[in-house]
């Protein structure tokens, strides 16, 4: 029995140590990739990655934002009309989106679309010896491959979140104003009164920035450190989506508590 307990503690210790080593490696990878003086050609690579990571994620963001905004408009109208306050649907849609849904849902979609693609791409580059090949040309793959993808993630997600909020608010307008007949002036006017730029919009964007950092870091580390086999790449891609999703939801609670907790 004692032996069993000792073994359990030893195994737990080994797992924790392994995780600590991985976190250290991930931190080192990030530091090495980001602490380099950019060259003129870095901008070209960054723009390429902004297209792949950001622009190519637009469709899923636009469609999801429209439907989520429409659902919010419908649910908000149904709920608020019971109290005769359906004119407040605009502020409800806007605050829900800007503070919570836009950063969280856009980040979850971004992790599923762009994060998994980044992991798979870098994992495949590793499996097909393209990263080793770069090294052999005297080029650090962390600077060449990891850095532009990391910065592209950091820039793209906040922009996608802003677009998500705008399209979601328009979706809410479509349902609440165009379909259910809420007065357009109330929809926009209440929203303008209720939404504070610093407290709501900037805090939402700050969340987006934190999520962008987490997703890009997780996705790139998983790709860079995966086993260079089909099974290894598949497992790393899954880990990217799972770890990113958990990190987004966990950090969302912490950030919400810090940003809006005092107001409750």
């Amino acid at each position: 029995m004692l032996r069993f307990v000792v073994d359990c503690i030893a195994n737990l210790g080994a797992v924790l140590l392994h995780k600590l080593v991985q976190m250290g490696q991930a931190l080192l990878m990030l530091l090495q990739a980001t602490t380099v003086q950019p060259k003129a050609s870095s901008l070209t690579r960054l723009i390429q990655q902004l297209y792949v990571v950001g622009v190519q994620s637009l469709i899923i963001i636009l469609v999801s934002a429209l439907f989520i905004g429409m659902v919010l408009g419908l649910q908000g109208f149904t709920l608020l009309s019971a109290y005769g306050s359906e004119q407040a649907v605009g502020q409800m849609v806007a605050l829900t989106l800007v503070r919570e849904l836009a950063p969280v849902v856009a980040a979850l979609l971004f992790a599923g679309r762009a994060g998994s693609a980044l992991t798979a791409e870098i994992g495949l580059m590793k499996a097909t010896e393209q990263l080793a090949s770069l090294e052999m040309f005297g080029i650090d793959p962390l600077h060449r491959i990891v850095a532009p993808r990391f910065w592209a993630g950091i820039i793209s997600l906040p922009l996608l979140v802003a677009i998500f909020s705008l399209v979601g608010i328009y979706g809410g307008h479509l349902v609440a104003v165009e379909w259910l007949g809420v007065y357009s002036g109330s929809y926009w006017g209440n929203m303008q009164q209720a939404v504070d730029f610093n407290e709501d919009v900037l805090n939402g964007m700050l969340k987006a920035l934190v999520f962008a950092f987490l997703i890009s870091w997780i996705a790139l580390y998983q790709g860079y450190s995966c086993l260079p086999t089909s099974q290894g790449i598949s497992a790393a891609t899954t880990r990217t989506v799972v770890y990113s999703s958990l990190a987004i939801l966990g950090f969302d609670f912490i950030l919400t508590a810090l940003m809006f907790g005092g107001a409750v």
């Binding site: 580059m125 097909t128 010896e129 080793a132 090949s133 052999m136 040309f137 005297g138 080029i139 650090d140």
Partner: peptide, 22 residues
């Protein structure tokens, strides 16, 4: 690392898979 990169410029490697940039 910097010296290693310089050394590698004097070296060519043909990888088993070719390792072309896709």
């Amino acid at each position: 690392q910097k010296q290693l990169n310089q050394l590698r410029k004097r070296m060519g490697v043909l990888f088993q898979s070719g390792a072309l940039f896709t």
